[in-house]
Amino acid sequence: MAHQSECTVSVADKSAVVIGGSTGIGRAIARSFAEEGADVIATSRSEENVEDATEELRSLGATTTAVTCDVRDDDSIENLWEVAEETLGGVDVLVNSAGSVARAPVTEMTDEQWAQDIDVCLTGVFRACRAFGQGMNEGGSIVNISSMSAGQARENRGAYCAAKSGVNGLTRAAAADLAPEIRVNAIAPGFVKTEMAGGAFDEGTETREAIDERTPMERVATPDEIAGAAVYLASDAASFTTGEIITIDGAYDDSAF
């Protein structure tokens, strides 16, 4: 696999797998990779969403295939690895962007809600890092999608905050375990306007006004703005960057809690 010079922010000629890549931030990352000349498989549990994302990636010139994956299932992740190896001829980049958000105070959260968020947002990242970390191309990059919530007090998000805090710890540990062959970093987005957010972040809503007031950038992010960081971390320009958590939140101020 040809690589760019170390000072070039480019993923051209790289092969990438984006788990949780059929919607939201993951979809933007997969699209950005393809636009930059990478071959990309974007996967999730939804066959319909995967087919749609795959069609878009193919239209951008990427070598790809439609394959679903459930990060709660080791066999599903192993199948994804095998399909990626066969389709792409090796994997240079893995992005873990699958997500789940249970909304309930800790006193009312059920075991099922807790388990869902931990299994998808944290254990799923571990499973993927374990499976792909054993066979990725040397010089590869793993990019985990964390959240600014990993370090903040957030109401009704106990499982999600715990899971994302775990992702940060796992990222640092995996960076040590997989060095020097593979780099492992995380991106911690702030508020991003995605399908998961629904209309809560639309301009004029009470939630959006509160966010803008506490954000020096006076707005929420777009998925493409998170994708830019993923392109950097996946590129050879980040060849000495590992074990880092990059927060992209417009300098949001959570001190008012």
Score class of each variant (00 low, 15 high):
98 A>F: 06
92 D>N: 14
90 G>E: 02
123 T>D: 15
140 G>H: 15
143 V>F: 12
77 I>E: 01
134 Q>S: 04
85 E>P: 00
97 S>G: 05
86 E>M: 05
131 A>Y: 03
108 E>Y: 10
98 A>Y: 03
88 L>E: 07
145 I>V: 08
101 V>M: 12
111 D>R: 15
95 V>A: 06
151 G>E: 05
77 I>S: 00
109 M>F: 10
77 I>Y: 01
141 S>K: 04
99 G>C: 11
135 G>N: 13
104 A>C: 15
106 V>D: 08
108 E>G: 05
143 V>I: 13
127 R>D: 04
146 S>K: 00
152 Q>V: 04
100 S>D: 11
147 S>L: 06
146 S>G: 08
118 I>R: 01
100 S>L: 09
112 E>G: 13
116 Q>D: 07
116 Q>F: 15
108 E>W: 11
129 C>H: 03
115 A>L: 14
154 R>A: 14
102 A>C: 09
84 A>N: 02
154 R>L: 15
117 D>T: 06
107 T>H: 06
135 G>F: 10
122 L>C: 03
105 P>I: 06
113 Q>S: 10
109 M>H: 03
81 W>V: 03
132 F>E: 09
127 R>E: 04
108 E>K: 10
140 G>Q: 07
80 L>F: 11
109 M>P: 00
149 S>H: 05
128 A>K: 00
120 V>N: 01
147 S>Q: 05
116 Q>W: 15
116 Q>R: 12
112 E>W: 06
88 L>A: 05
114 W>K: 06
80 L>Y: 15
120 V>G: 00
125 V>Q: 03
81 W>K: 03
115 A>S: 14
153 A>W: 08
133 G>C: 13
147 S>T: 07
138 E>K: 11
82 E>N: 09
135 G>I: 09
150 A>W: 11
129 C>P: 01
151 G>F: 12
127 R>N: 09
120 V>A: 02
148 M>T: 08
87 T>K: 14
86 E>L: 06
119 D>C: 03
83 V>P: 00
124 G>M: 00
